[in-house]
Simulated scan of single mutants.
Amino acid sequence: MTKIYIVRHGETDWNCEGRLQGGTDTTLNDRGKQQAIVCSNYFKDLNCDAIFSSTLQRAMLTATLMNESLKLSLIPLTEFAERTFGVAEGMTYEERVQMYPNKDYPNQETIEQLKNRISIGLKKIKTQYPDGNVILVTHGAVIHTLFTMVENAEIFPQSAQLSNGGVSIITNHHGKWWLDKYNQIKHLPK
């Protein structure tokens, strides 16, 4: 059985400003770096085999800072980069609602394209670690979309906010992915 601990990257300035990041390659702020370091404590006794990460620097830096104490193989996967949102990237929530009230952003990646990427990434992880425990550092829209793809998707409310540094868990049983827990945050500072 493959178990994936999914971590949302640490905080960025754009997170604080409510700006849509998407494929824009932002980096962690000081609080985000601290979240990443503290997040490694969640995993210290779990015997994980590897860390996979989105290739965007906010996720890679989160994984790298976590890995300073974990000392695991760190494997970048483009399949888990954040969904691209076209012209809406960099806009605040208010700007997006005013210009695109239906969230139909020009040049954004479709949900179907994103789901296809995520499926490919999950297959890669399951193939490499068919009986392993791994960490995956990725992004909010990727995690939300992934949770619509699991067998028990109904346990995750799509309106739920995912915390920077929050940990969720999915497992693969007989070729199907199941959500075990989502947005665990007890390990994070207040």
Rank of each mutant, 00 (worst) to 15 (best):
I4R: 08
H9I: 09
D13S: 06
R19N: 05
T27F: 14
R31V: 15
G32E: 07
K33E: 15
I37D: 02
I37K: 14
K44P: 13
L46D: 13
I51T: 02
S53E: 13
T55N: 06
T55P: 08
L56Q: 08
A63L: 12
A63Y: 10
N67C: 15
L70F: 04
L74G: 13
L74V: 06
I75K: 11
P76F: 03
E82K: 00
F85V: 00
V87A: 01
V87C: 00
E89V: 00
M91E: 10
T92Q: 02
R96N: 11
P106M: 02
E109P: 03
Q113S: 10
K115Q: 14
R117E: 05
I118K: 11
I125K: 10
G132K: 12
N133W: 01
I135V: 14
L136H: 09
T138H: 06
M149I: 05
V150C: 03
A153I: 03
E154T: 09
A160L: 08
Q161S: 13
L162N: 13
L162D: 11
S163P: 04
T171Y: 14
H174D: 15
W178S: 02
D180I: 09
D180Q: 12
D180L: 13
Y182L: 11
I185M: 08
L188N: 10
P189M: 12
